[in-house]
Amino acid sequence: MVEFYGQKLGSRLLMGTAMYPSPELLQKAVKASKAQIVTVSLRREAARQQSAQQQSGQGFWELIRELGVRVLPNTAGCKSVKEAITTAQMAREMFETAWIKLEVIANDDTLQPDLFGLVEAAQILSKDGFEVFPYTTEDLGAADRLLEAGCKLLMPWGAPIGSARGLNNPYALETMRNYFPDIPLVVDAGIGAPSHAAKAMEMGYDAVLLNTAIAKAGDPVIMAKAFAQAIDAGRAAFKAGLMEPRNMASPSTPVAGTPFFKLD
């Protein structure tokens, strides 16, 4: 079981809800994945859009409620501390949760976290009773400050959001895992294939958050299941104890009794 802010969860796969071909496929994919947490956002909506139930926020909200999963609102698109704080406050009221996936974005091309803004916003929000899930990098200094600010878990990126590049800096992610052995760590962003998620879990990460890799797969429902299996496999492998890599070959078949073998 993984635990986030006192909530124990059986699933180590957190799923995003964006970019699915249809609301029905989103629902099916979430069910197939057995994810217990989904991320959502808040966006502008005009009153007239409310009549088109499928597109509107109201219809989407009904769909999410039917899934019976825990909701993790995000501050996607926020580029300043102020924007992130106000969005978080709106999210807390709207979704009735203290959970917030905190994104403060520094750059439109890489969508990388603005670490300075992120730490400042995390401080303010934690003080105000939010339970912050910070989307961050592998920077250990920022990690220390986020934990000091009140965060009880960290969500470092694998690669830029939606890039499907996997774990760009596995060395740094391993280092981070070793530095914070007792903090729940979730790889969030840039995952493209189940093997990427499995690798993160084999490293000892506690969970993986992904969206695009499932939503943009040829068959999102089967891909959701594949990711769930990969995350299970990676976790089991980690618990089972992976063998250490070697530089040279070491025969697996016994050497003693090798036929046709001559000593001289």
């Binding site: 995003g16 989103l26 991320t39 959502v40 956002s41 808040l42 966006r43 502008r44 909506e45 709106m90």
Partner: peptide
């Protein structure tokens, strides 16, 4: 942020910048 309970007492003045948001898909 203006909580729901405070909307009635939030007076609007010229050039106020109002945001009205709803739930949406997100990653």
């Amino acid at each position: 942020f203006v909580p729901t309970a405070k909307r009635a007492e939030q007076k609007l003045i010229a050039n106020d910048d109002v945001e009205i948001l709803a739930p949406r898909q997100g990653g």
